[in-house]
Amino acid sequence: MEPVNDNPRQPAAFCRACGKALMPDEVQNYQGTVYCLEHMPQASAPQQQAPPVSDGAANPYYQPPPMPPQSSTSPGWAFVLGLIPGVGAIYNGQYAKGFVHALITGVLFSLADHGSGSTQTLFEMCIPVWIFYMAFEAYNTAKRRMMGEHVDEFSSIFPNSNLNTGFPVLPILLIVVGVVFLLDNLQWLSLRALKPYAGPVLMIAVGVFLLLARLKANARIGQEAHHERS
């Protein structure tokens, strides 16, 4: 992930009305709310352009002006469209994600159709879960966009902050799952036969992960203690 201050043209804020990314010099403030030049409400209100931050701080009961209705995104629609593979994400303007969603759905269906034995039932169970995941994700994303937050192309329900520091769980999980399924598909190894080992191995993996996390945290505490002492 890109560090926030790496790019000098990083937008400073986003317009409440249209969601457009704004450079520091384009930001318009109106009663404590950021707008772009286009959607800046006419300053015909009796009170003159008060300094926004102090206004908000001075009057905690002051209600910010009602948010202008988002013309393009509604979470309800996003949820409904999200039930159709890929469409929810496209509705949210995340085209690549829509493609990936559609692709995953297709793969799931073909697996449930072609797979044999337990893999088949596994994928059959995965399909409804996945479809509802897509719907909820589209709902969530639409909600965040409505709130004026900027969403990344590959945003997800799970927060991916401080992804940089921790152990790379997701990539390794992807690779492991990919390798296992590839070997299974090529019939070089059978998932059915691995099933009895799956539970214990999973437990061990989670245990190792937690152990590493604790050790790291302990080491940090130790270091801080050391710093304080010196």
Binding site: L186, Q187, W188, L189, S190, R192, A193, L194
Partner: peptide, 9 residues
């Protein structure tokens, strides 16, 4: 099918 390489089953 890759018969010789079937490890399980």
């Amino acid at each position: 099918s890759v018969r010789g390489l079937e490890i399980f089953g």
